[in-house]
Design a protein around this nucleic acid. Structure first.
Length: 561
RNA sequence: UGGGGAGUCGUCUAAUGGUAGGACAGCGGAUUCUGGUUCCGUAAGUGAGGGUUCAACUCCUUCCUCCCCAGCCA
């Protein structure tokens, strides 16, 4: 299979072979005003990924140009998330605010060159003067202010002489431009607010369009990769750098990630948290990096997912099944296996001695022999999964039913002899017998069984709580609602179910917080990193195993329903 | 209705004038002490119409559809 190159790789390789660049430098420039989500992860993988691939460098740079929205808390969570994904940046973390002085000097240059002016129009007036998509704008009455006056006013703005919103610095470009971004955009606004890093040193702060190209230029970024919605801003990005005659990186846009069955906008994510629809930013159902980490996703699986998505300019919505495939693929190779019974049903092996506890041997990871083996206690009273027994079983049901023989994994063949029900007719216990000759799980006479069940010893097992997560939303595109509707109406009421009576084999005690393991025949589960209880271990389900039986059942249901 | 982008199996993505390929999902089968994994097989696509060409996803043209832009947010 030959590796195909996406359009950005082609540009990079052209620039490398033409000698335009010797070293590739990219950047990931989050604004520290929220938590990173899977969409950011794609961008991180692209930016850091190219740097890695071409032996270049990717800067982690906080785009902290707006003091009223940004907080230190977000800075640390973002650093943690990027690092967790497995990426490294240069010797230090960068901040747009480190360049405030330099940006200011450049702004004065623009003013001196007659390319920027101080405008006294209010925000509302500027808005009106801007025109519309189809109508061109009008020039500000302050547009032709003499250069000396502009410079004086700008310095006084910086000195704090004016109140918030009373003045702005605007570029002098073209009020008739069909690209609204070019209609004399604002470069600086007055904000008498403390900045998380510069404190009260500034009361004027640069706008994105003005700041971003300069940040890239200062750092010597070669390829400034961003999402499609900034395509309209590229002419402005280019204009500023040309006016200043400084190093000029190339901005390239790619399609952002959308995922079905979830939402990705900061606003909606915030609403989920504040409306207590989830337990917090790192709720395992959230598409945030921290949520996915707590859910049990591995960095490798997220990186593989991003790789599978590729890079293109076409608007796209990835299928969450692709994400789930990436985790399963990664975890299948690495996760240790254990037996855990989520919904226990007691069985008694009638011909097994009352006080005897035997040990059987289990394989820790069939995909990785070096993971070794472990001992599992076996006794007369056991638990199996309730769903592994059926009284009136269809012919394709390979599990336990009255009179049929199945294997208890790594242990013995057993046969169900009797069903014990309570007064409500619910099955509360199964009486079984075992064949002592089948120890380890195979019969010396060569006879086969169709089904293999997981189990735990009733006495020699540990209690655990299991949190079963499902999709947070029931619709593919939860953000899409009818007139007057709200996206929260698409929330899946069954996105979390908590099982408190589950049991697990004792060997699971070696598992560390945040580690993801497999409960055989069930799925991958992560030992919760935050909640804990004296009574039991708490596991989050990362993703279930593929379930062919569920499909067969569905077909049967459809045929008879 | 101004400007900027984008249209390839259900989904994501290749093919840069020369056999429309891969992955996920689906379907069928084999193997299996996890109804997992693995393996094999199978179905499914170039938005529409014209044109250029021996040959068009690719070039030209007309049309259609979708996305983005009117923050002193990024």
């Amino acid at each position: 299979m030959t590796e195909s190159k996406n359009f950005i790789q082609q540009i990079i390789e052209d620039d490398l072979s033409s000698g335009k660049h010797k070293n590739i430098i990219t950047r990931f420039p989050p604004e520290p005003n929220g938590y990173l989500h899977i969409g950011h992860a794609k961008s991180i993988c692209i930016n850091f990924g190219f740097a890695e691939k071409y032996n270049g460098q990717c800067n982690l740079r906080f785009d902290d140009t707006n003091p009223s929205k940004e907080e230190e808390e977000y800075v640390s969570s973002i650093i943690e998330d990027v690092r967790w994904l497995g990426f490294e940046w240069g010797d230090k973390i960068l901040y747009a605010s480190d360049y405030f002085d330099e940006m200011y000097t450049h702004a004065e240059t623009l003013v001196k060159n007659g390319k920027a002016f101080i405008c006294d129009l209010s925000a509302e007036e500027i808005n009106q003067f801007r025109g519309t998509l189809t109508k061109s704008g009008r020039e500000s009455p302050f547009r032709n202010r003499p250069t000396d006056e502009n410079l004086d006013l700008f310095r006084r703005m910086k000195a704090g002489e004016f109140s918030n919103g009373s003045k702005v610095l605007r570029a002098k470009i073209d009020m008739n431009n069909s690209n609204l971004n070019m209609r004399d955009p604002v470069l600086y606004r007055i904000l008498h607010e403390s900045h998380h890093r510069t404190g009260d040193a500034w009361c004027i702060y640069p706008m994105y369009d003005w700041a971003h190209g300069l940040e890239d230029s200062i750092e010597g970024i070669t390829h400034s990769l961003c999402t499609l919605e900034f395509e309209d801003h590229r002419p402005l990005y280019d204009w500023f750098l040309e006016q200043l005659n400084v190093y000029h990186p190339r901005q390239i846009e790619f399609a952002r990630l959308n995922l079905n069955f979830t939402v990705m906008s900061k606003r909606m994510l915030l609403e989920l948290v504040e409306g207590n629809y989830v337990s917090g930013w790192n709720d395992p159902r959230m598409p945030t990096i921290s949520g996915m980490r707590r859910r049990g996703y591995s960095p490798a699986s997220i990186r593989k997912f991003a790789e599978n998505l590729g890079v293109a300019k076409r608007e796209m919505t990835a299928d969450i099944a692709l994400l789930e495939h990436s985790v399963r693929e990664d975890l299948n190779k690495r996760a240790l296996r254990f037996m855990g019974v989520l919904d226990p049903l007691k069985i008694v092996i009638e011909n097994f001695p009352e006080d005897k506890v035997e040990e059987v041997e289990g394989i820790n990871n069939p995909e990785d022999p070096s993971a070794g083996k472990r001992k599992i206690p076996f006794s007369r009273e056991l638990f199996i999964e309730k769903s592994d027994f059926m009284e009136d079983a269809p012919k394709k049901f390979f599990r336990l039913t009255l009179g049929k023989e199945v294997r208890l994994r790594y242990a013995y063949f057993i046969t169900c002899k009797d069903i014990i029900k309570n007064e409500n007719g619910e099955i509360v216990e199964l009486r079984c017998t075992y064949d002592p000759e089948t120890k380890g799980g195979s019969a010396p006479d060569g006879r086969k069984v169709k089904g293999t069940l997981h189990w735990v010893s009733a006495e020699n097992s540990l209690p655990m709580e299991v949190r079963l997560y499902d999709r947070l939303f029931t619709t593919e595109n939860p953000a899409k609602v009818e007139e007057g509707g709200h996206f929260t109406q698409n929330i899946n009421p069954n996105s979390l179910s908590v099982l408190k009576g589950s049991r697990v084999e004792p060997a699971v005690q070696t598992v560390k917080k945040g580690e993801t393991i497999q409960f055989e025949r069930q799925g991958y589960f992560c030992l919760d990193s935050e909640d804990f209880s004296e009574q039991y271990l708490i596991f989050n389900r990362t993703v279930s195993l593929r379930d062919t039986w569920k499909k067969i059942q569905k077909k049967v249901d459809n045929n008879f329903g």
